[in-house]
Design a protein around this nucleic acid. Structure first.
Lengths: 351, 351
DNA sequence: TTGGCAATCTGTAACGTTTCAGTATATTGA
DNA sequence: TCAATATACTGAAACGTTACAGATTGCCAA
């Protein structure tokens, strides 16, 4: 039963990139049928379905994203919103790869939406929501009362946050247990006989600032150690600022004999400051630091480290947004990574 | 002259997001006129133009990208193609920000298209070209005979490369003068009395591998120093591999008294290896390294560094692709950054 | 007055997709 | 036998934009 068409659309085959029309022409079916056959709709005959899909594969048909987007409003885009100035370097790289890893097996693309220090953090969010240029959003630098999260919740834009909020609203997130990190760090330092501890905290304002502070304080009282105030700087300050401030503090009579640092780059500055003051790491003072790649032990083997995996964070966040878009309950898309052990240097094993 | 319309389209104003139709309804003009007025077309009256633009601004009209893309084929997207495994961490972060900086003032979005070690580097390129999902592409890890560049040139996809090719084809690029870097490094080491130099090179295969090797060799013969072969590792190897190999070489009778390193992370490994062998940086051996952020001097102040600015690279590459899309001659969109001086540690100035 | 022309504005079609409201054809039940 | 129903398919319309090919108006030269 040859039912080749003789419409005015014969030329469909001549075009560059195949469309549904091309497929319709080649199979002798209507474009509606082809469209439905490709997405395994129920009311399409089994043989027709197979035939269409075969031809589609053969000629390398790829749906036109603009067409889909115009018609359905779905963009097949996930946007990662990043602060251009303050984001940790390895964070950017790792989280992008983590997200990519997950998106690679989906029709989704990753677009990076940056905003700078000078800018209102809400601006990129508003843009994304107003223009509908993404199906889902991932944000970092999450705050306890985060206007971005609230706004997206109100406007029905699916999103996941790196870090938790504290607004009584439920939404997907991925977080590292910074309370546990700070506590473990303090306990470790205490176990080494360190008694006067300083904390280089995350920037105040972000949710994990208080998590870290609480973990630090809780463990301090648990082990009976005391805190040397070090809250005029945070990991958002420049290397130079942290270094100067550390040197200052270390030159005082009553100085810290232990540091807990929330970021690897900042730890370099702390160590530099310690040495500026003429003191020695491991003898006069010990430092426990978070790190996201295994470099600190190359820097000073006396350093104590806890690893935070940003690539994992990226994957988890991507999975969460996709889940949310797919209709899963927001509450089921939350993950908290427990901090691993505090690790001291162990020499590499020769091969 | 009241020419309010009484079509069936009155409801245009009720919709959620304003479109050309909404504007047409509000101004009492046709959508064609509105469309042209918004892009300052010549045959639109001055007053009409102003009126339309005013209303558009007032109600926050944003053109629908899907509509534009479907109609014109323009995506307003620049794709940055990155290797998920081998790309330098700070490179990813900095180049993304550099690109973003430039794109921010344009209607363009940045999408990140990753590929992994296991994958054919051509695959993401073919995808982009075949599906037309970007108006321009930026690639890194450029090779002398780069199939990606050739393919995009053949298919008319605008692109810029980070690093040069050597195929006799002209296309936009941005590159760092690695020949000059390696030469300057060697000269500096020679000036300090170092005579037996080793080079930790970029991965063979990339164009700047030979640039670096040539610069190294040229300066060696110029200053009459000799090379200690170190070519079983490159900066693409793991920290551990580089460290082991360095330690091995440093334990030999005839060992390097100077290193030139093409990447900061690798330099950490070299220094670790040197110290594994019981030798001391600055006394037994000196190291000149490229770095993209100012961390190496915190690590060991004896290190000598040359800075490479990836953020600048990102901006330049973005400007190049945009220029090419805008019709500029490819040959006019090439930039080569001369390496700065070799810098030794200078103590920070207290504020 | 007429024709021509410039200056402004307009409707229609098309880009590729999905949805809606069907239309044929075969199958079933009575 | 007929109607009802299920199965498999279809055309037209719409999403928002731009390009094309006019249409209308006013003005000026002849």
């Amino acid at each position: 039963m040859d039912r080749r068409r003789t419409d005015k659309n014969d030329e469909a085959s001549a075009q560059g990139r195949p469309t549904l029309k091309t497929l319709a022409f080649m199979t002798g079916l209507g474009v509606t049928t082809v469209s439905r056959a490709l997405k395994d709709a129920p009311e399409i005959g089994a043989e027709t379905r197979r035939r269409v899909q075969l031809v589609a594969k053969q000629i390398g048909y790829r749906p036109n994203r603009a067409g889909i987007r115009l018609r359905t409003g779905r963009t097949n885009v996930i946007s990662l919103v990043l602060n251009t100035d303050r984001e940790i370097m390895s964070f950017v790289s790792d989280i992008i790869y983590g997200v990519s890893e997950v998106l690679a097996e989906t029709p989704y693309h990753l677009i990076v939406t940056p905003y700078s220090r000078s800018q209102d953090p809400m601006e990129p969010i508003r843009y994304l929501v107003e223009t509908g240029s993404a199906d889902g959003v991932i944000i970092s630098r999450t705050q306890p009362n985060d206007p971005r999260a609230r706004y997206m919740l109100e406007h029905g834009m699916p999103f996941a946050t790196h870090g938790r909020t504290d607004m009584g609203l439920v939404h997907p997130y991925h977080d590292f247990d910074n309370h546990a990190f700070a506590s473990a760090a303090v306990r470790r330092l205490a176990s080494m006989g360190r008694r006067r501890l300083a904390l280089l905290s995350p920037p105040p304002g972000l949710t994990y600032y208080s998590h870290t502070l609480d973990g630090f304080a809780d463990a301090l009282s648990e082990v009976g150690a005391s805190e040397i105030p070090f809250n005029t700087v945070s990991i958002d300050h420049t290397i130079e600022q942290i270094r100067m401030r550390t040197a200052q503090v270390m030159r005082r009579d009553v100085r810290p004999d232990g540091f807990v640092s929330s970021a690897a780059a900042a730890t370099l500055a702390i160590v530099a400051g310690i040495e500026d003051a003429g003191l020695k790491l491991g003898r006069d003072v010990d430092v426990v630091s978070k790190q996201s790649s295994d470099l600190l032990h190359l820097f000073r083997r006396e350093l104590l480290v806890v690893n935070e995996n940003f690539r994992l964070a990226g994957s988890e966040l991507a999975r969460s947004v996709l889940g949310l878009i797919g209709g899963a309950a927001p509450g089921s898309l939350q993950s908290l990574v427990v901090a691993g052990d505090v690790q001291s240097f162990s020499p590499p094993v020769p091969v």
